[in-house]
Design a protein around this nucleic acid. Sequence first.
DNA 1: AGCGCGTGCAAGTACGTACTTGCACAGATG
DNA 2: CATCTGTGCAAGTACGTACTTGCACGCGCT
Lengths: 198, 198
Amino acid sequence: MFNALPNSRSPEDTRLRILAATRELFAKRGRRGTTTREIAELAGVNEATLFRHFGHKDALIEACAEHYCQAVQLQEFLHHLTGDVDSDLQQIAARLIETMSAVRDMIIMSLAEEEESAVGTAAWRAPLSIHTTLAEYMARRVASGELEGDPLLLARFFMGMIFSRVIGMKKFPDGPEGPVPMTEFQVNVFLNGVRKSK
Amino acid sequence: MFNALPNSRSPEDTRLRILAATRELFAKRGRRGTTTREIAELAGVNEATLFRHFGHKDALIEACAEHYCQAVQLQEFLHHLTGDVDSDLQQIAARLIETMSAVRDMIIMSLAEEEESAVGTAAWRAPLSIHTTLAEYMARRVASGELEGDPLLLARFFMGMIFSRVIGMKKFPDGPEGPVPMTEFQVNVFLNGVRKSK
DNA sequence: AGCGCGTGCAAGTACGTACTTGCACAGATG
DNA sequence: CATCTGTGCAAGTACGTACTTGCACGCGCT
């Protein structure tokens, strides 16, 4: 047989194409709104193949969530920072936007689902680990007298700020200047708000 | 026949019970995950009755969205404020939390859907109108020299702050002190961040 | 009393979807 | 060459779900 796509035909590659198609469709229509037929078609694979790989739909969902949501380690990232709180936070914000954007659809899926699922667990893995790391960073800055407040609340505030933009604010699009000025604005307000007054 | 529930049996009441059941189930399982059978059962109504009222499922969804999402007018609310920016914003925040919580599930549903739907339009009606009003409020405060910055960005920042808490931050629950200190913290940081320095 | 409206009930239709199965084929590997 | 593995293909099963229909019943009218 011939195939439409220039497939590399290793089993592993088949698996990856199925996972990619799964993610794309799930993000659009949700888990219940997506059919295995559609997934197979988009992946350029026979539906039977899909079931041979994953057994059943739920396992496919789980595999998809696990595949695309690894915990992000940014401890190392935090150690490469210059030491200037302002530029540190700008960089953290940029990194945060990047990371959260990557799991945006997963997070929304998890929000729209009834109870804890594999998707929910996986989707929040990165944000939760980031939150912890960020709280440690804030704690250091508080200890050094640069910032004031509860580090946990500071980290949460900061993440929420970014979160609201990434997740929900398609309805409030960035201005024509693009996303960078908005990020700068956010970080500045945050910094002014929490910098220790002398 | 007898019925389990102490039903008031007017057609209008039947309609309302169906809408309530629809909303409850949709919030849990999404539109595709919810069956008309379940809705009818939860509403204490026969499935046929449901279809006699709404024709088909999509119309039911639309009716549900329209019924539960009216635009919130808080112009009048803003005029009752004391004039002290700090307490003003605290009150606005409280009101905002209230309003957004009421449409939280609708907003999440709209986020999880592919394109613009009736739910999407309805769910964002209140937040969008609030955003406009709030921007006007900020503009006044900027004009009076109390705050500084672009009123639109200020309003957006403020709403995003609340939005992140209401929508997504079940994963970052409020501390044991309850939600009020968190709100105060948020508003304080915001105010410190945007108050005009003299 | 008689009528109509809203509803319950039971059965049914049409269709979509998860998942299976048996067979054929092509490529890699021994 | 022989075999095994991964896949395509076509047909099929079982079931769930949106939506329909015909009938009976009860309540509130006039």
